[in-house]
Design a protein around this nucleic acid. Structure first.
Lengths: 201, 201
DNA sequence: TAACTTTACTTAACACTGTTAATTATACAG
DNA sequence: CTGTATAATTAACAGTGTTAAGTAAAGTTA
């Protein structure tokens, strides 16, 4: 038999091909400026073929963003997490988060700004990749409190506050490239270090 | 004579009419979902009439955002700025900033996220309203340092870092309304207070 | 008042968008 | 070889931003 498996494999391959064409276009030209026809051209299929693999354009965006989140999660988890210095781990993770955003600015905006607009609220629900990213952050804060490097703060709120700070600096640097920022690395460090300083025991 | 003045006044009035129709639609339905024809319908003119008053749709967006920034600036400057307690002033301003964003979420996103995408970098240049808003922030930080409420931090960098933090929390609360945030006010206060704590002498 | 000019606005059109329904081609099973 | 499911296509719809050409009204001058 085996032909069924081959066909399934081919379908999956085409799905991936669509996804990677969409990502490349979204990232380079912006979600709004990419038409289904452009994607279709790139993969040399008719525009409507895409609809056999994705519900609509927003679904395509959603899939692209899920991949981005997985990649971010992977980046964060690669950081060697030596428990002996949880503050340093937190600092490094914060930097890695911002740097990820700056390295793939359009991916970042797609995931954390554009998508929420098109898929109200989804993406951070239970079991989602987004939730796993946030869990990672929560665990780090928790460790800082446990080792009394931080004072007895509310882990949940603190995690969200830290996320706010790194999210903010990432987006400002992406969205206003012409603003006279002080040296970029200095700004990122200041944001992270000031937050950490404010949380110390 | 006077007819010339009257005509000029009428033109200006129509321009304002277009602007306010555009703002209302942009805010309620999102920039992308508003067509020139919809705006035209609302003011009962033909779609192309708008082009006699605004270069294109992005120009319309730009004008709407300039108004938003002026309104934000006005909100901030209304805060009674008693110099005796610069930290408290800073804290109140931070809260006012975030609350402004949450009160007019679509305006805020239009101004600080959508527009930069359509009008690369503009809006924070010299003499702009955006610059005036940031000057306000810089002055507050400067006062904190002068009175030695803050340690001897770099005013420029610190201002940018504070902006990052409030921008971040504002956007997260707007973009992920379904995320299980801890109580909203508590989160906002935590972000602002943690930053301030980290800057104290 | 009559003819001319400027201003304000509209109509028609172009090339493009996301998406659906109907249609064709392809590959499989019996 | 025939019938059937699957995959992909073509055609079409209603809508988009924007431009060019045309029209109606108002102001100016004789």
């Amino acid at each position: 038999m085996g032909t069924k498996e081959r066909r399934a494999r081919e379908k999956e391959q085409l799905q991936r091909q669509i996804l990677s064409a969409a990502r490349e276009l979204f990232v380079n030209e912006g979600y709004e400026n990419v038409s289904m026809r452009k994607i279709a051209d790139k993969i040399e299929y008719s525009p409507t073929a895409i609809y056999l693999y994705f519900k609509d354009k927003a679904d395509l965006l959603d899939s692209v963003c899920k991949e981005t989140l997985l990649s971010l999660l992977n980046t964060l988890e690669l950081l060697n997490r030596d428990k002996s210095n949880p503050i340093e781990t937190l600092r490094k993770s914060g930097r890695a988060y911002v740097e990820f955003g700056l390295q793939y600015p359009q991916d970042y905006k797609l995931t954390f700004v554009i998508r929420p607009q098109f898929q109200q609220g989804l993406g951070l629900g239970e079991g989602s990749v987004g939730e796993r990213v946030f869990n990672y952050l929560r665990a780090m804060v928790s460790e800082c409190v446990r080792q009394q490097a931080f004072r007895q703060v509310d882990v949940e709120t603190t995690g969200q506050a830290l996320w706010s700070a790194v999210h903010g600096v990432t987006l400002l640097l992406i969205d206003f490239p012409d603003f006279p920022w002080t040296e970029k690395d200095k700004l990122i460090d200041t944001v992270i270090d000031t937050m950490i300083e404010g949380l110390k025991a």
